[in-house]
Structures are given as C-alpha cells and as structure tokens.
Amino acid sequence: MSTLNESHIQRIFDKLDEDGDGLVSLDELKELLDKIGACTGLDELQSLVGKTSLNFIDFLFFYEAMVKKNNEEKIKEDNMNINDNSLEDDLVEAFKVFDLNGDGFISCEELQKVLSRLGLWDEKEGSDCKNMIHMYDTNLDGVLDFEEFKNMMLVSKS
C-alpha cells in the first residue's frame, strides 16, 4: 500500500462523504474497502473503528493505521520467506562485522567506525548515525540487535 499525502486523503474523504455532512459512515468506508480488495464485514469494521462514522481526523488515523499494519505484515511476510540458510548465515556474518565488541548489539559508535573503514561515512555531509539506528530500532534502546539489523537489511533489499 503506497502512502498518500493529506490532500489526497482529503479528496478521498470528500468523495466518500456523499451527503456532505463531514462524516463517512461505515457503509461508505466498507464500499471503498471492497473496491480496493480489502473486503471486511461491517461488524469487523465496527470493532476495528469503534464508531459508526468517521470525521476527517478519524479517517486520517484509520488510513495511517492501515498503512502501518500493511507495512508490518509485509516485513513479517518477507521474514517468513527467508528459507535459505545461506542468507541467514550471511546476515549473521554481516552483523558480526558491525558488532565490533561482540556484545550482540550495534551501537552508533560501532556503526560509524565500520562505515568510516568502508569509506561510506562522511562527517562533512552531516551524517547522523543515531538517526540511522533510530529508523530500525523497534525497541528504542538506542542500539540494533540482530533481529532489528535483519529487518533493516531485508527492508533495504526490497
């Protein structure tokens, strides 16, 4: 599912809001979901949304939640498709290259040192390894464990 900007979402909302009352009913939302192949029952949609109609802000949150859910499912699916042990072995070896002290985590300092050795780090460009790590640090501990590293490599590969 590609992400849309807020003006696109507003146009979709306005199209769905046929009576112009500023609300999209669950029936109207279900019609849209059916059209895009994301069929669901009204009862399931009601329990998912928790309301009988959505204003624009609710609709925006619903859209963002669906995008996040879809992205998480894609990552899980990609991870499940790794049946090749050599790929897993390669990822373990790559992780070891970055985990300089062998503690099972890649810190900002370790990332910067390895990227510098590889000629891929340029402090003049204002690169920030903390931001690089933060993008994939799902448990927000400031370092990458092997699973986070693996997810980063698989997402980057796609």
Results as ranks from 00 to 15, higher is better:
97 V>C: 05
7 S>E: 15
79 N>M: 15
145 D>I: 03
42 L>V: 12
20 G>H: 07
76 K>R: 13
67 V>T: 04
109 E>F: 01
125 E>F: 04
37 G>V: 03
70 N>G: 11
117 R>Q: 09
56 F>K: 06
93 E>M: 07
34 D>T: 06
39 C>L: 11
36 I>D: 07
23 L>T: 10
149 F>S: 10
36 I>G: 03
78 D>S: 13
76 K>A: 15
88 E>T: 15
53 S>L: 00
4 L>N: 02
75 I>D: 10
130 K>C: 13
57 I>V: 11
26 L>H: 00
47 S>K: 12
100 L>M: 14
46 Q>D: 06
95 F>N: 09
104 G>H: 02
135 M>S: 13
12 I>Y: 06
26 L>S: 04
117 R>D: 12
31 E>N: 13
13 F>T: 05
123 E>W: 00
57 I>S: 11
12 I>S: 07
49 V>C: 08
139 N>H: 05
6 E>F: 05
14 D>G: 06
44 E>P: 02
133 I>T: 11
47 S>Q: 10
145 D>A: 01
123 E>N: 14
140 L>E: 15
148 E>D: 09
104 G>R: 07
126 G>E: 12
9 I>L: 14
39 C>H: 12
81 N>V: 01
68 K>T: 13
71 N>W: 10
128 D>F: 13
87 L>A: 15
35 K>V: 06
19 D>Q: 01
131 N>W: 00
29 L>E: 05
62 F>Q: 02
4 L>D: 00
89 D>P: 10
25 S>R: 10
111 L>K: 02
31 E>T: 11
134 H>V: 05
120 L>T: 09
118 L>K: 02
17 D>Q: 09
67 V>R: 04
144 L>A: 03
121 W>D: 08
26 L>F: 07
102 G>F: 01
1 M>P: 14
126 G>W: 00
58 D>N: 09
